[in-house]
Every structure is written in C-alpha cells, then in structure tokens.
Amino acid sequence: SEFQINEQVLASWSDSRFYPAKVTAVNKDGTYTVKFYDGVVQTVKHIHVKA
C-alpha cells in the first residue's frame, strides 16, 4: 500500500523489529525515507513499512 509524507507508520529496524516512524519522503524507486522517534533517518523498502 502507498504511504504519504508525514504519515505515522511502523518501519523495520536492523533487528527486524518494527518501530514507530514518520514518512519523510516517498522515493521513485519504491522506497520510503522514514524518521524514527529517536531522530534516526533511514531509507527502507516498502515491504519494511506497515501501518
């Protein structure tokens, strides 16, 4: 599913667990740039983002 900029989502971290994050960019290659609550910004594949 498509997510929008500033949408609150759950994004997987390197430990494969999902954490609350905010979408900061929707990228043309189908990835999302997300910002976790601790301030870390990461680009993740769409399969690693869920509502």
Rank of each mutant, 00 (worst) to 15 (best):
D29S: 01
K45P: 11
K35L: 14
V9C: 04
V40D: 11
H48D: 13
D15M: 02
G39C: 07
T31N: 01
K28H: 11
E2D: 10
V49K: 14
F18S: 02
H48P: 02
Q4G: 11
Y32I: 11
V44A: 01
D38V: 04
G39S: 06
K50C: 12
V23D: 03
G30Q: 01
V34C: 03
D38H: 11
K45I: 10
Y37G: 08
V9T: 02
Q42L: 12
N6M: 07
E7A: 09
A11W: 03
G30P: 01
R17Y: 11
I5M: 09
S1Y: 12
T33A: 01
Q42C: 15
P20E: 06
H48F: 12
V26S: 04
R17W: 09
D29C: 03
A11C: 09
K35A: 12
Y32S: 00
R17N: 14
K50H: 10
D29W: 04
G30A: 01
K50W: 12
A25I: 07
V26T: 02
I47S: 13
K35H: 09
F3I: 05
T24V: 15
D38I: 06
N27D: 02
F36C: 06
H46M: 11
Q42A: 15
T24K: 05
S12V: 13
F3S: 02
Y32C: 04
Y19T: 05
K45E: 10
W13H: 08
V49W: 01
Q8N: 14
T43W: 03
V40R: 13
V49N: 05
I47M: 09
D38G: 10
T31D: 02
V49A: 06
E7N: 08
K22Y: 12
E7P: 01
Y32Q: 01
V41E: 13
Y19A: 07
H48W: 11
N6V: 03
S14Y: 10
F3C: 05
T31M: 02
V40Y: 09
F36P: 02
P20H: 06
S14Q: 13
T24A: 04
V49L: 12
Q8L: 15
T43P: 00
Q4V: 09
H48R: 09
Y32L: 09
K28N: 10
G30H: 04
K35P: 00
N6A: 08
K22Q: 13
F36R: 08
H48T: 07
F36H: 00
P20F: 06
D15C: 09
Y37L: 08
S14P: 09
S1K: 14
F18N: 02
S16N: 14
K28M: 10
K28E: 13
K45D: 10
E2H: 14
N6H: 10
D15Q: 05
A25M: 08
A51K: 15
F3R: 00
G30V: 03
T31H: 01
V9R: 00
G30M: 06
Y37K: 07
V49G: 05
G30T: 03
I5G: 00
V23W: 00
V44W: 03
E7F: 07
V41W: 05
A51D: 09
P20N: 06
W13C: 10
V34Q: 01
V34H: 00
Y32F: 08
A11M: 04
L10P: 01
S12M: 15
K22M: 14
S12D: 04
S12N: 04
D29G: 05
W13R: 15
S14E: 12
A21T: 02
A21W: 03
F3A: 04
N6T: 02
H48E: 10
S12A: 14
S12W: 12
V9I: 08
F36V: 00
V9D: 02
E7M: 10
Y32A: 01
